[in-house]
Design a protein around this nucleic acid. Structure first.
Length: 702
DNA sequence: CGGCAGCGCAC
DNA sequence: GTGCGC
DNA sequence: GCCG
């Protein structure tokens, strides 16, 4: 078995070894060298004696049957030289991670029943004194040669390897990294906490199911102990890692393993459990990335699938609990990975427009009045290839409110009839939204394309169209940044609503808000009571936004206001204060202004984003050597000062001379086939009523 | 040191 | 309420 | 990670 760490480093273990116990890792860290055998081998030897020499006794004494399968609860005499372990044990006790030994076990060195015996792991405290005494007396002179214990149905059987020699430092050799005492202590602390937690849980569990059987009580589920699990299970081995030739090991790698152990919530029972810990995080991440490519699958689901033992898409396919989205995602997995050329997007867009015009019967619209039907998303942003097709439809201005859901449903039916939408799509009915919009998310294949594509079609009321355009044109970062910025415009918002603290911008409105109420994610973060959860969120933000978030928002602040019409929007809002304008008109005016310059703004923002990305890359691509880090720090400090010295309206972290980077290939703006959206203002008056051409089969439906 | 977009759906 | 996608 |  090989345990791989980052960078493809491998930790080789004996073939028959499937487990690396946390005890081992703990020892490694605590000692700064791979020297776990002192404690472990003694236990193991003792078990060996029990399993072989005391075979008869064991068979005649039922009490030992269970214990033999729980080596962590079996202890042997401490044979000198255990100062470090003892230190560790005492540290634990001082820190309160493990209870002080019971009085009967408390005699220190020299006692025959010992356990001064800083056992290196807290589970030992469960050991029954009688058993311990009996067992300890069985161990005469432990051989330090045994290294692996494999489990057999009858208990643990030692595999003696007499060829291996144990040096003073242990068969594992010495760390090639200096012993880091504080790191070791931290690790020990974490493990102590973890084990404590595990134990508490198992106690709870035992209490809950009323089982008085100690063999399934505390200690047996302690991580790393060899659990008294079903003997029919795959032969599981208890590794003493003595073959860890850590030319390939690094303290960091072990730290990662430790982290995995600390964070794991279940006992190590099977080889799979071990995989979860040791097998490279890289491969886990990779696998989860693949899972997350399945439409409808996020981080949580990918992780759950992995935990449940899925190691391939085939495994996933076999699951019975896939959601509709996930089933569709699996079905078109290969297709959805393909990017879509602009020509195909345009063709699909035209098809949708045709259908919409037919369904909404736009033939008699007043002069200049138009149905809005356009592809948005990255297509509109000029990308040569897109991942999906985003369509937005809104009725002509003159037609007033119509039922979005009904209209979209009719359009989708029509498209289905025309063969664009595949019949086995994720959802057949457009979902209604509270704001009067309807959304369809499905699968389409244009006649000219070999691939099925992800298609979103939205139908929004005309009055919110500009907001919808903003939202769905993206990019995601742009939208998010814009909203974040809007939320912070307290002064502007107060002009409309004295108590307001900012604006809330969504896909259908820009409204003043009373207070900056925490977002869902933020409140989750706050309500996360356990630390791990909180840290997860923190990591999430770190990973997903990173330092780019702040930079991005400051960009929006500075550039979008000035470059695009956002400032103008606020001016318009101001001019509308106290006016008789209905909200729809206000929204229209604002968003019209937003729309007018949004393309220009986007170009500029993207340009700046690109520059910022490069800057960030340069700033964060730090080498693990101090000098370079120092250099980087000075670099950014310099930037900050320079920024501060310039106008306060300028961002602090962006230097124009950083752009463009030497290897930057600017995108062509606008794209050759770019055409302004067919947008007409709401002011076109009229009372034209749209007739939605419903499919006869649907007429009966509400 | 707190905060990091906001929405509605499926489940 | 959570997970997910947009 | 970085800003206020």
């Amino acid at each position: 078995m090989q345990v791989s760490y980052d960078g493809g480093k491998l930790l080789r273990l004996p073939k028959e070894v499937h487990f690396v116990t946390p005890e081992f890792v703990s020892e490694c860290l605590a000692h700064g060298q791979l020297q776990p055998e002192r404690e472990f081998l003694i236990d193991i030897v003792r078990m060996a004696v029990l399993a072989t020499g005391q075979q008869a006794a064991r068979n005649s004494d039922s009490r030992h049957g269970g214990d033999l399968r729980e080596p962590s609860r079996v202890h042997a005499e401490h044979h000198g030289g255990g100062e470090m372990s003892q230190d560790v044990w005492e540290q634990w006790q001082r820190a309160g991670f493990v209870p002080a030994p019971a009085a009967t076990l408390n005699s220190k060195h020299g006692s025959k029943t010992r356990d001064a015996a800083p056992t290196s792991y807290p589970t030992s405290k469960d050991v029954d004194v009688t058993e311990r005494d009996q067992g300890a007396s069985d161990v005469s002179k432990p051989s330090l040669n045994s290294k692996v214990i494999a489990e057999s149905p009858g208990g643990l059987v030692p595999h003696m390897d007499t060829s291996s020699t144990v040096t003073e430092r242990g068969s594992c050799g010495v760390w090639d990294v200096a012993y880091d005492k504080s790191a070791a202590e931290e690790t020990v602390r974490k493990l102590g906490l973890h084990w404590h937690r595990q134990e508490v849980e198992s106690v709870k569990h035992a209490a809950a199911d009323g089982s008085g059987d100690r063999s399934s009580g505390p200690g047996t589920t302690v991580n790393g102990g060899i659990p008294g699990h079903n003997g029919s299970q795959e032969l599981a081995s208890f590794a003493l890692n003595n073959s860890c030739a850590h030319t390939a090991c690094s303290a960091k790698a072990i730290q990662r393993a430790i982290k995995a152990v600390v964070e794991s919530t279940s006992a190590l029972v099977t080889a799979d459990d071990c995989e979860k810990l040791g097998i490279g995080e890289k491969s886990i991440e990779k696998l989860q990335e693949i899972f997350m490519e399945v439409w409808g699958t996020g981080e949580a689901t990918a992780e759950r699938w992995y935990r449940d033992g899925c190691r391939s898409l085939e495994d996933v396919q076999g699951r019975s609990d896939l959601s509709m989205q996930q089933r569709t995602g699996m079905k078109y997995f290969e297709d959805f990975k393909q990017r879509i050329p602009r020509s195909e997007v345009a063709a699909m867009g035209a098809t949708v427009c045709d259908a919409a015009e037919e369904v909404l019967d736009c033939s008699n619209l007043p002069d200049g009045d138009l149905l809005f039907c356009s592809v948005l998303g990255s297509y509109t942003r000029g990308k040569p290839l897109t991942g999906d097709v985003d369509m937005l439809i809104a009725p002509p201005p003159s037609c007033g409110e119509i039922d979005s859901r009904q209209a979209l449903h009719a359009i989708c039916k029509c498209l289905q009839k025309r063969g664009l939408l595949l019949d086995d799509m994720a959802s057949t009915a457009p979902a209604a939204r509270g704001d009067g919009a309807a959304t369809f998310m499905g699968v389409a294949r244009h006649a000219t394309s070999p691939c099925a594509r992800r298609v979103d079609i939205k139908f929004y009321p005309r009055r919110v169209l500009p907001f919808a355009i903003m939202h769905f044109t993206g990019s995601g970062a742009f939208s998010r940044a814009l909203r974040y910025w809007a939320r912070s415009r307290a002064n502007e918002a107060r002009r409309f609503q004295p108590s307001a603290n900012g604006f809330k911008l969504s896909d259908y409105a820009l409204v003043p808000i009373q207070s900056k109420e925490p977002t869902r994610q933020a409140s989750n973060y706050h309500n996360a009571e356990n630390v791990a959860e909180a840290r997860k969120f923190k990591d999430f933000w770190r990973a997903n936004l990173g330092h780019a978030a702040a930079a991005v928002t400051s960009f929006v602040n500075v550039n979008v206001i000035n470059v695009s019409g956002m400032a103008e929007c606020l001016r318009l809002l101001e001019s509308l204060r106290g006016s008789e304008h209905p909200y729809e008109d206000m929204a229209h005016l604002i968003s019209e202004q937003l729309r007018a310059d949004v393309y220009v703004a986007r170009v500029e923002v993207e340009r700046l984003f690109t520059a910022e990305r490069y800057r960030l890359h340069a700033a964060t691509r730090r080498e693990p050597f101090a000098p370079q880090q120092l250099q980087q720090r000075q670099h950014s400090q310099e930037q900050r000062t320079a920024g501060a010295q310039r106008s306060t309206r300028e961002q602090k972290n962006y230097r124009p001379q950083d752009y463009p980077p030497p290897d930057y290939r600017p995108q062509d703006y606008p794209p050759p086939d770019y055409r302004p959206l067919d947008y007409r203002p709401l002011s076109v008056a009229g009372d034209h009523t749209l007739r939605i051409q419903l499919d006869p089969a649907d007429r009966a439906r509400p």
